[in-house]
Write a protein that binds this DNA or RNA. Structure first.
Lengths: 288, 288
DNA sequence: ACACTCGATAAGCACTCCTGATGAGACGAT
DNA sequence: ATCGTCTCATCAGGAGTGCTTATCGAGTGT
């Protein structure tokens, strides 16, 4: 199972074409054909149907594995290379959209920081592969419980604060006057689905036994303001940290009383912090 | 970063010898030397000091990555191969020690099952690499929260029941008469440390901010009866699921009132269940 | 001082892996 | 139906890789 072969396999599967994959990878079509044949012989299973080119059942399983595998490989290489390379001069921070509270932004130094906003799931990968020196992820969790992060590499995490969670709804909404809301009562409401902006509706549905939490409008992007505007306009409910949900024109943020979850922020990095990264981490309120 | 090179690297690091590693891998010493040289050139960093052979800082990082990486690789291969191979006749179940409640054991069919008890952390790997068809893991979690499992491969998990947690102490112990105990009050007590038998003291310490929960006696093994006997003899406290902690001669099991955690069991498998495995899963009480 | 162990290096050779050319189906247009 | 075209499989050849054997140089213990 040469990573090379794996890489050509995933591109062939993605492009659904041997010749296209060959062009993209800089090989000849012949080489790609031989790669796939070698993989199939090695594993003792046909991975792709030809004409049309599509993964078989076994091929689908391999695809599930291949992504994380190649990612980990990149992460390992980046990690080791980083130790040998000269320390970077700038400092780059990858943050989830809703993790960028005013407090976090205020903690950034005046100059020399590159800030990149990414979907939450991609942040550990970005940190592991060296795209960012420091990651700031967030998510819902039971109070003082650590977040569940995809483990692409051995990463270190530090808690960096928690805050209450609120349900954002249009001011005219019948539930907007309530002092608090229970999530279970909102399963049948219309929700915003914004996986990249930190509103993982699928998680809520899963926590509710797979029922309810049907998406009304799906937003693909990482802008929280857009999200709050959509919620205010009645396109669906949004579950947001207090700091992101307050002071939204035309919307009311009602505290969530049950289940007892908080919006938690965590700092992610590889190895140990040094220099500017350590300073920033302290400023962001990282606690052991 | 050929997995081959990675594999020889980890064995060299483990054996702290090029020649020994060559013998174990069936290569010549020369080949091993060239492998390491190739890796070092590829990554642009020296990974090992020679004489004595020991990993450098960069090498240590690579070692951290290599284990999970090679494991995932094995898991991927096993998963794909399994799809092509004939379905196994027997059914093998890997279970964590404290996950084997009387209810679980009663659910096993009369014949045709291979049962293997493993430390909790190894079960996902065993299932992923095909060593077991079905895994039964357990652990402490907030009520209805899923467990945190090392993700070696894309695995499916199903909740399979929760039960209260109890602190097991000798009947004569001053705290044994209490109706309930708070974990925070027990940080300074003497605890049993049994990582393989499902008593991860390190987790308790981590949850407590790294303080307290000092190990009194460390037990390396997977036998729960031994553990309860040790607790009854006063060698240290043990945190166990209700079903494992009750009816222990000489010991009293006091409910844990805070934090609100439960002992949760989950079924782990790869892909979807079929045949005997599905029947067993239903019997074990798996819920969607 | 000596033999011995261990890792690095050099040379040789088999084998791998790529390219370029050709073959074999499938599909659409005429 | 026939042709042209597109796509993947196969074949043959050559550059390069990766292994082995052989030898060296540097520590190490006797």
């Amino acid at each position: 199972m040469d990573p090379h072969l794996l890489r050509t396999y995933v591109t062939v599967a993605r492009l659904a074409s041997f010749s296209e994959a060959a062009r993209e990878l800089g090989y000849t079509q012949s080489a790609v054909s031989q790669h796939i044949a070698a993989l199939e012989q090695d594993l003792g299973a046909t991975l792709l149907t030809r004409r049309p080119v599509a993964p078989t059942a076994a091929g689908e399983r391999l695809l599930d594995h291949a992504g994380p595998l190649l990612l980990r490989l990149d992460a390992a290489r980046a990690d080791v290379v980083r130790m040998a390379a000269a320390p970077a001069h700038g400092l780059s921070l990858a943050a989830a959209p809703t993790a960028l509270t005013a407090r976090a932004v205020a903690a950034l130094p005046a100059a020399g920081v590159t800030l990149r906003v990414l979907p939450r799931e991609e942040i550990p990968a970005a940190v592991a592969t060296g795209t960012a020196d420091l990651g700031l992820v967030d998510g819902l969790a039971a109070p003082s419980d650590p977040l569940r992060l995809p483990d692409v590499a051995p990463l270190t995490t530090h808690g960096a604060g928690e805050e209450p969670v609120r349900v954002l709804l249009p001011t005219g909404h019948p539930l907007a006057r309530r002092p608090g809301l229970r999530l279970g009562d909102l399963a049948d409401a219309r929700w915003l689905d914004a996986p990249d902006a930190g509103l993982p509706l699928a998680h809520l549905r899963a926590a509710n036994g797979g029922h309810g939490f049907r998406p009304a409008l799906r937003y693909e992007g990482t802008d929280v303001r857009t999200l709050t505007t959509l919620a205010a306009a009645g396109h669906g409910l949004a579950l947001l940290p207090e700091s992101a949900a307050t002071a939204v024109p035309g919307a009311t943020a009602v505290p969530l009383t049950h289940p007892r979850v908080v919006h938690r922020m965590e700092l992610v990095y590889v190895g140990s912090l040094a220099g500017a990264a350590a300073t920033l981490a302290r400023a962001l309120g990282a606690r052991g």
